[in-house]
């Protein structure tokens, strides 16, 4: 699932943002800066737990272009459940922080990044935590509607809202699953294609991380949830022994 997600993010999502000249939330592991420009941007924010994403927005606001190199940086897949939750809760909390910091004054942000950048920032940074938080609630509503004749739900929502929501639910999920499939197909990882259908379950894990991130944002906003690295190697050694 990690490979699927990374292929989709680095092979499709980020090049797409670059192509459309939208702000790019920098990907953590391999960024290359001109030191002088980095100083000019105010360096990394030590309080932000996704300081790279924050820096990407500031670079865009200053009028700098972030370019993507056609290269691959290999990263260890996080294969331990609680370790994965820790890592994701940090990333999602970082997105929340970045969003709150830059949206303190939306008009100022529009002035800096323009309307296009503003909408992109809202969709690709702000909407991500919101989506993960809303996802389990909406799934529950759908299950109630499907199996328990949710008369009260039908009363709240008019038929056209239900129809459009159903369309979004089916078509949206399917398209994201499909793009994941295409992404690993491009990398020739044919064996992973079928796993893309598990994405809706994977997103539930993201939701757990999002709720944890929200909790931490309120009670412990600057805490850095450590990710334990080298778990794959440990597993590999144990297997060989």
């Amino acid at each position: 699932m990690f490979t699927l997600e990374y292929s989709y993010w680095f092979d499709y999502m980020l090049p797409g943002l670059e192509r459309m000249s939208l702000p790019i939330p920098l990907g953590g592991t391999s960024n290359h800066f001109v030191t002088e420009k980095l100083r000019e941007l105010g360096k990394w924010d030590p309080f932000n737990v996704t300081e790279d994403a924050d820096l990407g927005i500031r670079a865009f606001a200053k009028g700098y272009k972030v370019a993507l190199l056609n290269s691959t940086t290999y990263e260890e897949a996080n294969n331990e459940y609680f370790n994965w939750i820790r890592q994701r809760s940090r990333w999602i909390k970082g997105y929340m922080q970045t969003y709150l910091v830059h949206m303190r004054n939306p008009f100022k942000l529009i002035k800096k990044v323009g309307f296009k950048g503003f909408f992109a920032f809202n969709f690709f940074i702000g909407a991500i935590p919101v989506t993960f938080i809303a996802y389990p609630i909406l799934i529950c509503l759908f299950i109630i509607y499907l199996f328990f004749d949710g008369a009260s739900i039908k009363e709240i929502f008019p038929p056209w809202v239900m129809y459009i929501s159903l369309f979004n639910f089916f078509a949206g999920n399917m398209l994201i699953v499909y793009i994941n499939m295409v992404a690993v197909f491009k990398r020739r990882y044919y064996g992973l294609i079928l796993l893309a259908t598990l994405n809706p379950v994977y997103w539930l894990l993201h939701s757990i991380s999002a709720y944890k991130a929200l909790w931490q944002l309120i009670y412990n906003p600057f805490y850095w949830e450590k990710t334990v690295h080298g778990l794959t190697k440990i597993g590999f050694k144990e297997k060989n022994v």
Binding site: P159, M162, Y163, L166, F167, F170, A171, M174, Y178, M181, V182, F185, Y190, G191, I193, L194
Partner: peptide, 28 residues
């Protein structure tokens, strides 16, 4: 793996969308 992957990448989208469209017809 490759055969399945190719068939899925080529046909999953039209088939999936058609299934969704039929589901929406069923719901509505």
């Amino acid at each position: 793996n490759k055969l399945l992957a190719l068939n899925m990448v080529l046909f999953a989208l039209p088939l999936g969308l058609m299934v969704i469209y039929r589901l929406l017809n069923e719901f509505y």
